[in-house]
Structure formats: C-alpha cells, structure tokens
C-alpha cells in the first residue's frame, strides 16, 4: 500500500545562524507498483528524502504514513517498516561483510527472527532474482566482480521481501554493460513482483528509458512531479537546477531549430529514431 508524505520538512542546525532546510514542505503520494525516478543535483535533498521513507531520519515537522499508519507513532514497528521499505545505498557492495555470498544475503532475514529454513529459502530466491549463478553462492563476496557484488548487495535487501525498493544511484561506477544489467534487473523485478521502485539517478537518459514518474528535487523542494515527457519539457528550468534533458531531446530541439517539423517531446533513442524517420520519409 501507499507511502504518503504530508508537509514534511527537515531542518538541521535549528536555532542557529546556520539553519538549513534539507527538505522544505514535501507533499507526496507514492502508490503501489510505480516505477519512480528521483533526480536532483548533489545536495538537492534526494538522499535526505529517501532516508525519511524508511524512518532513518525523523522529519522536523510533518508526517509520513505507510499503509495509513504514521511511521513515527510509538506503537509503529520501525523494524517491520525497514523490511517493507528496502533501501539500497550508494556503493552497497561496501557493506558486504560475511564469509560467503549466501551468508551475506541471509543476514537480513535472519535478523527478522525467521526460522532457518525460511531464511535460506528467501536468500536462495533473492539470489536467483538478481540472476547470480549457484556456483558463486559459497564464494567470498570479495572475490566477485563489481557488478556481481552489487547484485549480491541488492539480493540482501530483496531477501527482506520489501514492498518498496529504493535504490540510491545503483549504477555509479559500473561500466556501460554493468549499468544496463542493473537497470534491466530492476525493471524485471518490478514486472515480476509488482513492487514499487524508487530509483535515485544522475542519468537523465536512464530515467527517461525506464520510469513512469519523475520527482525533481532542488534546494530541498519538490520542483516537478510528473510523467517523464512532461518533466523533460521544462528544459530551461531543469538546466537552471544543474540538471538536463535526455540527450536525444537536445537533438530534436536542434532539428526543430533548423526548421524541421519534429516533435521535441521525445526522450528515448527509439522514439527519436521513429520521429526522424517519419519526418524524413515524407521528403
């Protein structure tokens, strides 16, 4: 069920000269099953926002509701919340620590107090979900490649059976194929399990390709909350916030400037190819 943020503000340095509003009056409804992209430059408040969603940070004012319940009520179980709203941090492979891959993925569900059989079943399923072959299960996680380590770290969160999966820049530092693999995996997970996904990303091209809805943060405020095409039509505003439109959008804008009747509301390569062919075929 849904996550709702009602007038959420988070300040640090309250009462001093250095007071900063890291989040400024955020109102947001995140229904089940959406694939959401969260963008904004470094320091815009993205990470602060996602840390509010599973109760790691408590808002200075405002409320957060999960399935209709205020997550900061005294009788609300934060432990359960954190298993339901899974957060994969940046460079999550730095958090691997167990002697082998399988034990590492077992760590989360084991802490939920599940019996051994259930823990192992979940770990096995999670590793299968991220596409790691059985031969790696009993290797040290430190002997795997960068992309594999990251998938193990994601499996560790999946083994908690979250309903909402938040990934903070899951492709940072990976090669192009590694980036495609992780994003392909996330997209597949969403299709197969119907879980809500929130993807924090610096790549406009990636969000344009994958998500249904984009949230744009700037200086702690939620500037845009809309479907990708609508958000990326605000090119100038995005640039003023240190962001950009996808690269193909700029290509279409250039063609339009040169007098061709192309639709500039295009955000992916396949759409752009189709649109250029349409216009040039009529010549």
């Amino acid at each position: 069920m849904a996550l709702i943020l009602d007038h959420v503000t988070y300040e640090y340095g309250t009462g001093t000269e250095l007071k900063v509003k890291a989040l400024d009056d955020i109102n947001l409804v995140i229904p089940d099953g959406q694939f959401i992209g969260l963008i904004g430059h470094t320091g815009s408040g993205k990470s602060t926002l996602v840390q509010h969603l599973n109760g790691l940070i408590k808002p200075t004012s405002g409320n957060i509701y999960y399935n209709g319940k205020d997550i900061h009520d005294e009788d609300f179980s934060k432990k359960e919340l954190r298993s339901k709203v899974g957060l994969v941090f940046q460079y999550p492979e730095h958090q691997l620590f167990e002697i082998d891959v399988f034990s590492d993925v077992c760590f989360g569900p084991k802490n939920l107090g599940l019996d051994k059989k259930e823990v192992e079943l979940r770990a096995y399923q999670a590793l299968k979900q991220v596409g790691l072959e059985d031969e790696y299960f009993y290797q040290s996680p430190f002997d795997l490649s960068g992309g594999q380590k990251r998938r193990v770290a994601i499996a560790g969160v999946l083994a908690m059976k979250p309903e909402v999966l938040i990934l903070d820049e899951p492709t940072a530092g990976l090669d192009p194929k590694g980036r495609d693999e992780i994003l392909g995996l996330v997209s597949k997970l969403r299709k197969e399990t119907g879980m809500t996904i929130i993807l924090v990303s610096h790549s406009m091209d990636d969000v344009a390709e994958y998500v249904d809805r984009i949230l744009v943060m700037n200086k702690g405020r939620l500037m845009f909350d809309d479907e990708p095409k609508k958000v990326f039509s605000h090119v100038e505003e995005l640039e003023s916030m240190g962001l950009a439109a996808p690269q193909v959008t700029y290509i279409m804008m250039e063609l339009k400037k040169r007098g061709y009747p192309v639709d500039t509301n295009v955000i992916t390569i396949s759409e752009a190819a189709k649109e250029i062919k349409r216009v040039w075929a009529s010549k």
Partner: peptide, 8 residues
C-alpha cells in the same frame, strides 16, 4: 567523474 552529478 564517476561519483559526480551531470553538472559536476
């Protein structure tokens, strides 16, 4: 640039 945002 691996850890930077588009502007950086």
């Amino acid at each position: 640039t691996a850890m930077l945002d588009p502007n950086g």
